[in-house]
Nucleic acid binder design. Structure first.
Length: 155
DNA sequence: GCCAACGTTGGC
DNA sequence: GCCAACGTTGGC
């Protein structure tokens, strides 16, 4: 049974991977997530075709800078097996991987992003989980309404 | 299974 | 660069 299309907000630091990088690559494996909640969203809940708000954090003007979509089912994050790599996970084995990811495909880059300030100011976006104080989760679910509201705010 | 210590995140 | 909030670790 296929679930309905779902929507997500995915954070990234543009210094390491930006919407421009995704536009150039067309799609990318969302590797390096090392948080259980975020992993569970990718492993258990994401489906091909889900909508993604692409968010830039830790930068001059944090905000949503484009749209993407989930482009694969989840599969083990290969970086967990890279000895000496930044994301190496000694507890993981090929038989029992710890970390999972999905592929994310480029959809659209906004000319101007929707800043975190604008997100906070919009009354229909008060429920956004990433706006909660101290929210550090790099992947959060958003409602269809929230997704569309952000898309409409964007230029 | 508690909880203090630690490292990280991320807006400002 | 600051610092509050958070998740994870590890000793007990």
């Amino acid at each position: 049974m296929k679930k309905e299309k779902q929507y997500w907000l995915m954070k990234t630091e543009p210094m390491s991977y930006s919407i421009d990088d995704l536009k150039r690559d067309r799609k990318t494996a969302w590797s390096g997530v090392r948080n259980y909640q975020a992993r569970n969203f990718m492993r258990d809940d994401m489906q091909v075709g889900d909508g993604v708000l692409f968010y830039h954090s830790s930068c001059k003007e944090p905000g949503v800078y484009g749209l993407a979509r989930v482009n694969s089912k989840s599969y083990p994050d290969p970086t967990q097996f890279e000895k000496g790599g930044m994301y190496y996970e000694p507890r993981a084995t090929k038989e029992k991987p710890m970390w999972f990811l999905v592929d994310v495909a480029f959809e659209k880059k906004f000319k101007e992003g929707v800043s975190i300030r604008a997100l906070r100011e919009h009354k229909d976006l008060r429920g956004l989980r990433m706006l909660e104080l101290g929210s550090r989760l790099s992947i959060t679910p958003v409602t269809q309404k929230e997704f569309e509201t952000v898309a409409l705010l964007a230029v």
